[in-house]
Structure formats: C-alpha cells, structure tokens
C-alpha cells in the first residue's frame, strides 16, 4: 500500500512556496503575515479578496503544492480529492462573525463571513479554482500531527477510491480569546499524493502504510507532516 509524493507547498510565518523552489521552510508559532494575492497568483482572482484569512491560507498552500507537482493548470476538472487536518479551523472567522452578529441582536450578521464559518470551505474554494471534483473533508485530530489525515488520504489511494489526493494541514493557531495554552503552529502545508508514477514528473519519495497505522516515508517512520516536509526537502535538495 503506497502513494508517491509529487508536490508540496506551504505558507508559514517564515515564508511561502513549494518544494522545488528555494523558499525556506519552517513551521513556527509566530503570527502569520497577511497573505497577498500577488504572492500566490500572478493574475487577479476576484474570489480571493472576499475570502477569510483561513481560506486564503489553505488555498495558497494548495496552490503552491499543485504548482510544485506540475498540476496547477488544467483545462478540465479533475477527480482529485482533498483532506486536511486542523485543530482550530475557522475559529478566528467564527469570532469575527460573532462580533458582527452581537450588535443589534444578530440583525447585522454578515452573510459573507458566515459562509466561511465552516472549516471545509477553503477546500470548496480550492475545488473551484483548480477544478478538483474528488471528495473534500476536514479531519479534526486531538493531536496536531496531521497523521490521521495523511493516513486517510493514503488509505483512499490504496483502496482505489482515489488516484490523486491533496493532503495537509491548515491552521491559524489558537485565538487569544481562548488563552495562551495549547498553541499550535499557524500555517498551512499540503502534499500532492499520487497512486502511480507519471512520465516526466519528479517525485520526492514513497509513503507506505505499515502495521499499526504507522506511515513510512522512504522506509522511515514519520511522526508529523512537518517532519515529512523536512524529509522531502532533504531528499530533493
């Protein structure tokens, strides 16, 4: 049971980019800078401006991952699935929405903000932008490792339910309203997984699902998605 990694992309406080670029990669708990459309897409993209910060974060990292895999552009829709881990999801947007709803007892609640108060909505934005018609769902894991999401993505490929999956994590971190304990890194990191090699496409390596649900990358046990990204970059660079 295996899947090939053909692309990775990220947006973190340290920078944004894809694996085959020379952008530095680090996942830290620092606050993310605002994500500017021009840093992600060359051409204007009207949906980008209306999105919440969480959706911009996820969409941008998926864009870098697909670009890294050579799969960003396509004339037709594609049966590519999306699965992502998040701990706090769209909670920052929830707070913004609720603060819009509290005055005047909800009569001034923002419908546009409410549309982004589901953590899977950035996947809908990615599906629209890149023509992805596979399944798309969020995995909320008690640990922030992202390994359950990765396991489910590898499982789908192994079961023949998907040929290509985009898998990763997307989190803005713990809002200050909840206190400072339990902070998780703010950032998004996505991988493109494929079931079989395609000519003229390069791969970082192979993921395998071993016994007891463990996941191996190039025969080494992986503990979280950040470690997987580092290992991919070590191999490539």
């Amino acid at each position: 049971m295996s899947a090939l990694i053909s692309g990775l992309g990220w947006v973190t406080a340290a920078g944004m980019g894809g694996g085959k670029s020379l952008c530095p990669f680090a996942m830290t708990t620092d606050r993310l800078p605002p994500i500017d459309r021009k840093a992600v897409f060359d051409q204007p993209y009207k949906n980008f401006g209306r999105m919440d910060e969480y959706s911009r974060l996820g969409l941008a990292a998926i864009a870098f991952a697909l670009r890294d895999a050579g799969l960003e552009q396509s004339a037709a829709q594609r049966d590519i699935g999306l699965v992502a881990q998040t701990e706090y999801g769209c909670l920052w947007t929830d707070i913004d929405y609720y603060n819009s709803a509290l005055p005047d007892r909800g009569t001034m609640a923002s419908p546009n903000l409410f549309a982004y108060t589901l953590p899977n909505c950035f996947m809908g934005e990615a599906a629209i932008r890149f023509g992805l018609t596979g399944d798309s769902y969020i995995v909320n894991e008690p640990s922030a490792s992202g390994m359950a999401a990765l396991g489910l993505a590898v499982e789908e490929i192994a079961a023949g339910e998907a040929q290509t999956m985009i898998c990763g994590r997307c989190d803005l971190g713990r809002p200050p309203l909840l206190g400072s304990s339990g902070q998780v890194a703010a950032g998004a990191l996505f991988f493109v997984l494929e079931n079989a090699p395609v000519a003229q496409r390069s791969y970082y390596g192979t993921l395998e699902r071993a016994a007891h649900g463990q996941i191996l990358f190039e025969d080494e046990r992986i503990s979280d998605l950040t470690a997987l990204a580092r290992r991919c970059l070590q191999i490539k660079r």
């Binding site: 999801g89 953590p119 899977n120 894991e141 008690p142």
Partner: peptide, 29 residues
Amino acid sequence: MVPSDVPRLISRRLGLTAEGVNINAACAS
C-alpha cells in the same frame, strides 16, 4: 467548543483505547 475536542471527549467517556478523529464536511460530515 471546537470540533477537535469532540473525539477526545467521546473516546474517554466510552473507554476507547484510541482518541479517534472528527470528520468535518458541512452537512455531509
């Protein structure tokens, strides 16, 4: 309050070995 709390709450209540995960996909969750 956040969905990532829920599998832990239920797993502990039911005495399951593993914590499990929450699937969040709007009305198809």
